[in-house]
Amino acid sequence: MASPKISLRGVTKSFGAKKVLQGIDLDVAPAESVVVIGGSGSGKSVLLKCILGLMQPDEGSIKVDGEETVDLSERGRQRVMRKFGMLFQGGALFDSLQVWENVAFGPIQSDGMAPAEARQVAIAKLAAVGLGPEIGVLRPSELSGGMQKRVALARAIAREPEIIFFDEPTTGLDPIMADVINELIVKSVNDLGATAVSITHDMASARKIGHRIAMLYDGKLIWQGPVSDIERSGNDHVDQFIHGRAEGPIQMQVRKL
């Protein structure tokens, strides 16, 4: 593999007594699209937030383009952040701003683009996720859940970042729109040469957008391999997960609050 875009070694993260990540090793090559699957609450979102520096991992090393990012200074963090775009699981749209201002936020605030120009960019990105220009002047609270997700996606790709994280991009969308979004993600990776890490529960989507799949279970990546190998992973946990069976080695634990 060429020198990896993102490289994780021995990353751990606990919340109090609860160990969420227990030694994650992961390499993502430039222009590669990796899909992380795993049960609800297994720590997939936490993993992305650790890479982004929104959470501090307890131990381990996280390198972006060969540069260690754990313990980075504030300024260094901002510089590294310029490479990233993130679609948050909950959207995380700025509710005090209009939709187009949300999408244009990165171009205007951090790249210094003129508002008029950024507005055109925003409208184009909104169109790419199937939203017309009339949506641009609404507030996020006036949109449906699926529309919010698509606006958040438009915001994540508006700056055409080198690395894009998608946290459940198709959750809450109808099957047709889900496929449109899948194609958009594939296009971002292919056309822009972006490196992508996506989280999804939707195996159809995983197959479509991923080059490689990694499964998170019990704080570790228990299996990684090309998408084509997922059916013959030889791993009982993976088999149970991709076929969605209740019986198998993964026991659904009833978690205490």
């Binding site: 982004l52 929104l54 995380a92 936020f105």
Partner: peptide
């Protein structure tokens, strides 16, 4: 609602 995290990811 993670809007502050989103600000950070938008540099």
């Amino acid at each position: 609602t993670e809007q502050i995290d989103a600000l950070t990811t938008l540099s």
